[in-house]
């Protein structure tokens, strides 16, 4: 591997100090903490590293970077979690979710697309409000939209190429995987229709106005990319959900059928009746692959 150069010690110390200041949460007025992590007043400590200008103190100058750090990252989370931010409003999202989350999971990758990938986990571990399940489901759906949008496309299953001499029975024993751009959800409400209505207005609109109605009832959904690479969703039956969920982990048709034989009769009947149509649809849409992501 090509070599690198050892960094100067003074540079490292300077950058470590700078970083320790800018990652500290700003207050409700977007102001920097007046006391450094060392316990010394920022106005005093900052002068050791940063020159004051004619118009700003040393602390005032680094405060600009402290603000930019939080405004930029919170802005990314607003864009990545549009349903969540509308459930809270900007202010409450920032202070209840966004900033505590980013303190627990600060960015560690060059891609900002990955900034929110631990938010559902953080919510599960740290949030205790009555609406926790709704928020968890909302965060997972929002995250899935981002991940589906950017996911790789594996070589789709080609039935003709995958069978030997037109013998499709060979396909039954081959392990199949769902495209990584496909996400499955089992919910106690129609959160997708709710999200669609919610996103018609900006987040602050919902502070003064009633939320859209959230239809209750067990439902199963699939999120995927269409041929235009737009992320779309559709409601599916429990049988199709269970079968696709099995392929998501990697399975042969034989294994999937054995799994289904163990399910309730109503599910088995649904699958038996629709299996051929579903599998034709999945293959035609390129949802299945012999490759693993």
């Amino acid at each position: 591997m090509p070599f690198d150069v050892r960094s100067p010690q003074q540079l490292k110390q300077c950058q470590q100090w700078f970083a320790s200041i800018i990652v500290r949460p700003i207050d409700e007025d977007s102001r920097m903490d007046l006391v450094a992590p060392s316990g010394v007043a920022m106005e005093i400590e900052a002068k050791n590293y940063i020159k004051p200008s004619r118009t700003l103190t040393s602390a005032g100058r680094i405060e600009l970077y402290n603000q930019q750090y939080w405004w930029r990252l919170l802005g990314i989370l607003h864009d990545s979690f549009p349903l969540l931010v509308r459930l809270f409003g900007y202010h409450d999202f920032n202070h209840t979710l966004g900033m505590p989350y980013l303190v627990a999971y600060p960015p560690d990758h060059w891609s900002l697309n990955r900034l929110g990938e631990n938010l559902p986990r953080w919510l599960a571990e740290n949030y205790s409000g009555n609406d926790k399940q709704l928020l968890l489901d909302s965060s997972r759906i929002d995250l899935a939209y981002t991940q589906s949008f950017l996911a790789a496309t594996l070589a789709p299953l080609n039935v003709a190429d995958s069978s030997k001499n037109g013998d499709f029975a060979t396909l039954l024993s081959k392990k199949l995987y769902l495209q990584p751009s496909i996400f499955l959800f089992q919910l106690a409400y129609d959160l997708f229709a709710f999200r669609r209505e919610f996103l018609k207005e900006e987040p602050d609109y919902w502070i003064e106005n009633d939320f859209p109605s959230l239809e209750q009832g067990e439902k199963n959904f699939l999120l995927c990319r269409n041929p235009h690479n737009d992320v779309v969703w559709t409601e599916i039956s429990l049988g199709e959900y269970l079968l696709l969920n099995y392929f998501q982990r990697g399975a042969t048709f034989d294994e999937a059928c054995q799994f289904l034989e163990q399910q309730e009769e109503s599910i088995f009947e649904d699958v038996a009746k629709n299996m051929q149509r579903w599998s034709q649809k999945w293959v035609a849409r390129g949802w299945l692959s012999l490759q693993r992501s």
Binding site: Q10, Q15, Y65, P107
Partner: peptide, 20 residues
């Protein structure tokens, strides 16, 4: 804009020294 294990997603200025 980064240190080991952390990215700050900003364009942070460097000290202007011969070492740097």
């Amino acid at each position: 804009g980064r240190l080991p294990g952390a990215h700050y997603h900003d364009l942070l200025p460097l000290p202007y020294t011969k070492e740097v």
